[in-house]
Amino acid sequence: MTEPQTLSFAIAGIEGEYLLALKEDDIEQVEISCIDKTSSDLDNLDIAWCLLCSAASVFLSTNKAVEKWLDGIHKAASDCYGDYDFIQKALGEVFHHKSDWMDKMISRDSDETYVAFHRLLWGHDPLAKGEGLANLSFNPIKMMMQQEESERSGHALFGAVQAMRHLLADTFSKQGLPLPGLSYLDYERSDGKSWNHIIDVVQEFSVETTGNKVKAEELYRHLFTLRAQDIAGGTLTIMLTKAYIASRQLEDTIRINQIKLVSYSTSFFGQAIVGAVRQKGVPYINYPLAIAMVKELAGLFYESNRRTYLLGKETERLHGAAQEQLARHDRLQSLI
């Protein structure tokens, strides 16, 4: 056997052992085939679809007409007078929350509050602890359980359900629902009034961008709240991206992670740019998209490191196998 034939035989044997080892390590056949059949790099169609998803998501998340329509659902749920369509009325019934203690215009330690930030200062943080006026819990779920038992003569469980209805309803409003945990940024001002550091932040942004504090509430709603409009925009991106992956029957997990990451990140930053243009440098923040983006980034790092580890492990084994084959060839040559 000539030396080229010997090397060819050795390589063929190593490749067979490599594929067998991958199967023994529970690597799926589709992933094995992806090693040389499917590139993890995005093609032009992938990029085009990601940009299309981004455009649709940004439009839905930043459109003023959509914002107004969604706010109509919240107003219908609050029994505000207005001209509502069938869907707004129906959802208004689902999320009805008039006369809930959560909407009392008070702060955590006073019988009056800064109306523009009343949700931030009272009754809307599901992570809040402690009690305030009249021994009412700061936590909206516990508060509504108290109301159900004392005023509505129902089971406390109904109060917990009502609290969730109310919180979901508030995401449909223009301002949205404060991010959970912001109540821990409360402090007492020098005049004794209950306050929150977030209000100071958005007021400073407003002064820097407009010269006064008038835009503080508008900046707050796009920086520190959860809004149904943002959730809808993020959900649209996720659904369109998954539909594209399914339609192209993509199976390479790294490529799938890449597509999702590009789609979600372009949607997130596209919305941020629109906000920066409208608000003189202050971006819109879509938290559902941010979470999805971070998740896919972590998934991409994990999958890439996993494959790198497996390839490194197999490379070491193959190197040893190759050395054995060459040593065997040398022994055969010496016998000849």
Score class of each variant (00 low, 15 high):
318 L>D: 10
256 I>H: 03
252 D>H: 15
275 G>T: 03
191 D>K: 01
71 D>K: 06
260 K>P: 02
249 Q>C: 14
12 A>D: 15
106 I>W: 07
317 R>L: 09
279 Q>D: 13
287 Y>T: 07
169 A>E: 04
37 K>Y: 12
302 Y>W: 13
285 I>E: 05
272 A>K: 01
114 Y>I: 10
228 A>Q: 05
129 K>L: 13
221 R>I: 10
316 E>P: 00
23 K>M: 06
221 R>M: 03
260 K>S: 15
12 A>I: 04
36 D>R: 14
249 Q>N: 15
207 V>D: 00
24 E>Q: 11
21 A>M: 08
203 Q>D: 06
229 Q>A: 00
313 K>T: 14
158 F>I: 01
196 N>S: 02
176 G>K: 00
275 G>R: 00
290 A>Y: 04
144 M>L: 11
79 D>I: 06
249 Q>G: 15
234 G>C: 05
115 V>T: 03
330 D>H: 13
291 I>Q: 09
160 A>I: 08
22 L>E: 09
42 L>R: 09
64 K>C: 07
235 T>K: 02
188 E>T: 13
115 V>S: 12
286 N>P: 02
33 S>R: 15
130 G>E: 02
242 K>L: 14
257 N>W: 11
206 S>Q: 02
123 G>A: 00
125 D>M: 00
198 I>M: 01
240 L>Q: 11
95 F>Y: 03
325 Q>V: 08
94 V>T: 06
59 F>W: 11
55 A>T: 08
123 G>L: 00
185 L>M: 10
233 G>F: 01
260 K>D: 10
23 K>A: 12
10 A>L: 12
300 L>G: 06
48 A>L: 15
94 V>N: 00
5 Q>V: 10
9 F>G: 13
254 I>D: 08
98 K>I: 05
122 W>N: 05
311 L>F: 13
125 D>W: 02
218 E>R: 03
176 G>N: 06
100 D>F: 04
193 K>T: 12
279 Q>M: 07
153 S>I: 05
12 A>Q: 13
179 L>D: 06
67 E>N: 14
329 H>L: 08
22 L>K: 06
